[in-house]
Amino acid sequence: MDGPVPYFHWGFIQISLANLVVIGVMLLIFVLALVLPFPGHRGRRDHDADQR
């Protein structure tokens, strides 16, 4: 914990490993939220079929 923090450099961008991991996890959560089905929520097609 008291050692130097690893940093990454790309041109003018400089970011610590910890911050890079946080951003990566956030992107992963965002993509999962878009693609994973919501529990208890039926598809649009099922809903339309019930209406007919």
Partner: peptide, 11 residues
């Protein structure tokens, strides 16, 4: 509304 059924709206 119907479109609320998404994890995006949980944030």
């Amino acid at each position: 509304p119907f479109y609320i059924g998404s994890w995006v709206y949980v944030f």
